[in-house]
């Protein structure tokens, strides 16, 4: 049978390119030493957990995706917090599980857990500015078109709901449309839409479920931004609503996502840690 290409390879290449672009063109302060520590820690944690949970083989791909996402988002002056955040991110896939699969997007959980507890790390949502808009849009849409057409609904739905929210707020306030456009062109928003909420392992299985999930995350992010006046509303909202995925899956069941699927059928592992 023809084996479908693993979308994670595209994602690794795209994220690596974004890391290089951010470091060289956008002053994202992605330094070599912390980046190397993130990647090494992520792979080591994945390896140790693979042994601990007696999995058949060590798969570095998801750990690489998480570590590249952390390179893009995690900022701290402390190397021990770099290690701590990365360990929490990867370990969350193995320890925080419902119905045989992990609950949180690892990068999202690692960042929020450390920000909410010990602090000392931060995410700079403004640093992408609006100049990276087209680069991110192309990278994101490219990934969806090539690999994840069947699961891209959550990204489109999220963009649609959040856009409706900020445009609606603007119309209600009587502000110029330049303001919501400024919000929607922000690189951090696109990065979240294309590379975080789109994680097929932590979003509901059915299309209706994913659209409902996107609506909740968009409303939650709006609440954080416009009612609590806190930054990084996307990250907080996704962590808050990720535990609803098992409930949504029961109410609106669908086919569970596999990274690589053979057609017409393949043996599906019930324990996916990727």
């Amino acid at each position: 049978m023809q084996r479908q290409r693993d979308p994670r390879i595209y994602q690794i290449a795209t994220l690596a390119a974004l890391v290089a672009y951010g470091a060289s063109r956008l002053d994202l302060e992605i330094l070599l030493a912390p980046a190397a520590v993130i990647v090494a820690t992520a792979l080591a944690t994945q390896f140790l957990c693979t042994k601990l949970f007696s999995l058949p083989r060590f798969d570095p791909r998801s750990a690489l995706i998480s570590s590249l996402s952390l390179c893009l988002l995690l900022r701290t002056d402390s190397m021990s917090l770099v290690v701590g955040t990365t360990v929490i991110a990867i370990a969350s896939k193995f320890f925080l599980r419902i119905d045989g699969r992990h609950v949180f997007n690892p990068t999202n959980f690692g960042l929020v857990a450390v920000m909410a507890s010990v602090g000392g790390i931060w995410v700079s949502p403004g640093q992408w500015g609006t100049g990276a808009f087209f680069a991110l849009l192309l990278a994101g849409i490219g990934g969806l078109v090539i690999h994840r057409a069947s699961r891209s609904d959550v990204t489109y739905a999220f963009i649609g709901f959040y856009a409706a929210l900020v445009v609606g707020r603007t119309l209600w306030l009587g502000d110029p449309l330049a303001i919501p456009l400024h919000h929607l062109q922000n690189g951090a928003f696109l990065l979240f839409a294309f590379f975080m909420i789109s994680d097929p392992k932590t979003t509901p299985d059915s299309r209706a479920g994913r659209i409902l999930f996107a609506l909740m995350v968009a409303l939650g992010a709006g609440f954080v931004h416009f009612v609590l006046f806190e930054p990084n509303g996307f990250l907080w909202s996704l962590v808050l609503f990720a535990p609803t995925t098992p409930i949504i899956n029961r109410l609106l069941p669908g086919e569970r996502y596999q990274w690589c699927r053979r057609r017409p059928a393949m043996r599906l592992s019930q324990r996916s840690y990727a």
């Binding site: 701290t76 002056d77 402390s78 917090l81 920000m115 507890s117 010990v118 602090g119 000392g120 790390i121 931060w122 609590l228 006046f229 806190e230 930054p231």
Partner: peptide, 14 residues
Amino acid sequence: LLGISLVLATCWSS
């Protein structure tokens, strides 16, 4: 003016 509240634990680094 106006303000947010991201209250982070103090992280001292030399």
